[in-house]
Each structure stands twice: as structure tokens, then as C-alpha cells.
Computed example of a mutant assay.
Amino acid sequence: MIHALFAAPQAYDAAWTGPLTRAFAAAGLDVALSRDHAPETVDYIILAPSGPVTDFSPFIRAKAVLNLWAGVETVVDNPTLTQPLARMVDPGLTAGMVEYVAGHVLRHHLGIDAHLAAAPGAWDSTAPPLAQDRPVAMLGLGALGTACAKALVHLGFPVSGWSNSPKSIPGVTSATGRDGLDRTLAGADIVVTLLPLTPDTECLLDAGRLAAMRPGAVLVNPGRGGLVDDAALIAALDRGHLGHATLDAFRTEPLPEDHPFWHHPRVTVTPHIASATRPETAAGVIAENIRRGEAGAPLLHLVDRDRGY
């Protein structure tokens, strides 16, 4: 019998218990899933970073901590966490992000906002350029960034990408290093950020890098709020250097009602809906990692503590 601790808020139970139970059975695993296992009996911790476990030191038998979220920045630096940590990458989460990114890139590419706001009788029949003439930059070429980049290439956009390590993705011109970042920013009409939040990426898009973007460029950030210097972004929008920012992740969530983003005419706020962990698809990833852990095989999506993701 494998003891799995469900270390998540109680409100998660209704959505997750059924999918996890079915996934364990499909994988041939005999798992006792509970939020009440004694720490010394726990083999695996299924973790929501907003859940009840913040001290991992009592879990002396645990073989791994399996995160329910893609982001691990709230837990990766916990000094009590000595067990292997796996982040969540699942088909539903990836599909949701691809749909969000493709939808908002197309929205800005086609100028849909202007048509929605047009006064009755306004008839500007200027056609937008084709996708092939609208370069897009993808900052972050991990699982989510790569999937989004491939979808945009399929739609006909020229896509450049920037990441911490070299990547080879058909149809995507990729770069690394700070000089590569500046070139990537300067070459795009639309910039999408899907980087993890680490000490190296905190405020990566500061005043200098926002200034390096093309005049009129659009920023789409479904990644992490801390990637962007909020004040610098507002200043770049105010002076007209950037055309718009569509933001889905923020330093404080929910975004406070008095935050300037809510009221800025060149900002679209979406309430962290770009993608979510969907129990029906993510449960299979949890089950597979437990199967791997029991078989002594490498875990999927193992976090590199030095990199922070």
C-alpha cells in the first residue's frame, strides 16, 4: 500500500479525489489517498503550494513531492524541502495555455479591440497585415512556451524565442543570453512571456528592456507577474512606446481594485485564467510519477533546485 498525502486546501477535494482515484487504478497502483496520513507514513506528497504543508522535515519516508501547479517559486526555496520536487506539466494545462496565447496574439494582430470600440458609422477598411508579416517573440521555451511557439508557427507567424539554454524548435529562431534577449525583444511586434519566476528573471522586463521593444509593440504576459516591472510598464504605455499589455499574472492576486492596471486604457487584465491544472488530465501525471517512483525510474518534470524550475 502506497500512502499519498493530499496536501491541498479542502476545497480541492471534490475536484481531485475522483480523478486521482481513477488514475491510480488505471496505472495499477494501490494508493491510499488521504489528507490525514501521519507524516512518517507518507510515501508521496501531492502538493498545492497554497495547502497546509509548509514544513517538509517530518516526512522522512516521502520519496517525492508532486506539485499540482506548473509554478514552483513559492516552494522551491523552502529549506525543509529535501525530497525530490516535480512540477506539473499536463496536456490540459498545455492546451489551455496554447489557446490563451494564440487567442490574444490573434486579437492584437487583427486589431479586434479597435473594431469593438469603433463608433457607429466608423468604417476603416484597412486590412491587417498577414501573420507572416507580424513577428512574435516567445520568452521562455519550456514545455508551455514551446507548445505555444509551435502553434503560432502553424498559424503563419514568424516566431523568435529566448530561453536560458539553447533550444531547437522547427520554425523558431531561438537565442540565449542577455544580448540575445535584447535582439529578440527588438525584433517583435508582439512579445509573449512564459518564463519561470526565479531570481534571474525577477523584473526581467524592466524599463531598459521595455524601451528595447519596438514602438507600438504589444506585451502578453500569461507567465508570472514578477517578470515585469509594473511601474516601468505603466510608464512605457503612458508615453506611447508600447501599444498595449494583456496581463494574466500579477505580483498580488487577486489584483487589488486600486491597482493602475485596472484603469489603464492600454491594459487588459484577465484573472489568471490563461491556463489551469485540470484534474482529469493532471491526475494521470501524478499517477505516472508515483509509478515511476515505485519502479525507481526518473520522475517526470523534476525541478532543478539550482535553476529554480
Rank of each mutant, 00 (worst) to 15 (best):
L141R: 01
G103K: 03
G145A: 01
L110M: 13
H3D: 15
C203W: 14
E202T: 13
F24W: 14
V218Q: 06
S168N: 13
L233A: 09
P271F: 03
A86W: 09
P265I: 02
R307L: 15
T82I: 08
G216K: 09
A149R: 01
P256N: 02
G103T: 04
G240N: 14
A297G: 05
L81H: 00
P196F: 04
L205M: 12
I273N: 10
P128T: 04
A14P: 09
I273C: 13
D248H: 00
R278F: 15
A23Q: 10
A102L: 11
A14I: 05
G308Y: 09
S50R: 14
A27P: 10
T54R: 15
R87N: 13
S57F: 08
V218T: 15
A48G: 10
E73C: 00
P19T: 00
A8Q: 09
A297Q: 15
P166H: 07
P79A: 01
A147F: 11
I112V: 15
F261H: 06
G187Y: 04
V136M: 01
L233I: 08
G71T: 08
Q10V: 15
A14Q: 12
H264P: 10
I112W: 13
M88R: 06
L141C: 04
G71A: 15
A102K: 12
R209S: 09
V267F: 01
P49C: 02
F24R: 12
N164F: 14
S168R: 11
Y309G: 01
D182L: 14
G140K: 09
P129Y: 05
A207Y: 00
C148P: 11
R35W: 12
H154I: 10
P58K: 03
A282M: 10
E294W: 12
M138D: 07
L185K: 02
A297H: 14
V303L: 03
D13I: 10
A207C: 11
G180C: 03
V136D: 05
I290G: 02
G216I: 08
A212W: 00
G208V: 03
P199H: 07
A149N: 05
D306H: 12
L116D: 13
L29C: 10
D113S: 14
T80N: 04
I286A: 08
H241K: 07
Y100Q: 08
R35P: 14
G156Q: 04
V192T: 05
R278W: 13
G296L: 11
L181D: 04
D304Y: 03
D200R: 00
P58A: 06
G156L: 06
P279W: 00
Y44V: 01
L33V: 03
L144I: 15
G145I: 07
I60Y: 08
V75Y: 00
H37S: 03
P256I: 03
R251I: 12
R61T: 12
G111C: 10
P84D: 04
F24N: 12
V75W: 01
L204D: 04
